[in-house]
């Protein structure tokens, strides 16, 4: 198994963990962490599969940098919203569907 494939498989596993956590966990902080794990998995797949015969390809690396910026912004927004929710309801969980 080449190193590129190891990265890609690890990334795929992290992605699956992240998606599972995002769907199944009910604590919102854990959901946000799960989203970040999912993101890291995707970035690993991008960089891992992007290597051509062992030499790193700069284009997926630039994409991953952009992806990290987006993920940081989304995490920041999510944290701010969760704090507001905590302020109103006193809980870090989503209320049941009305």
């Amino acid at each position: 198994m080449s190193s590129a494939l190891i990265y890609a498989c690890t990334g795929a596993a992290l992605f699956v963990f992240g998606v599972t956590g995002l769907i199944l966990l009910s604590h919102l902080l854990r959901k946000i962490l799960a989203f970040n794990i999912m993101g890291s998995g995707i970035f690993l797949v991008l960089v891992g599969l992007g290597q051509r015969s062992g030499t790193p390809d700069p284009i997926p690396q630039a994409m991953v940098l952009t992806g990290i910026v987006v993920a940081v912004a989304a995490t920041g927004l999510a944290l701010a919203l969760v704090r507001r929710l905590l302020h109103f309801t006193g809980e870090i969980r989503l209320p049941e569907e009305p």
Binding site: L22, K31, F35, I42, L49, I59, A74, L85, L94
Partner: peptide, 28 residues
């Protein structure tokens, strides 16, 4: 706020799945 949090989580999951597709297409 609760509606916005739910919307944010769903939409992040959606774009995560989309980006994974992009990664696989770029890899291929």
């Amino acid at each position: 706020i609760a509606a916005a949090v739910r919307y944010l989580l769903v939409t992040l999951l959606g774009s995560g799945a989309y980006l994974m597709g992009v990664a696989l297409l770029y890899g291929t």
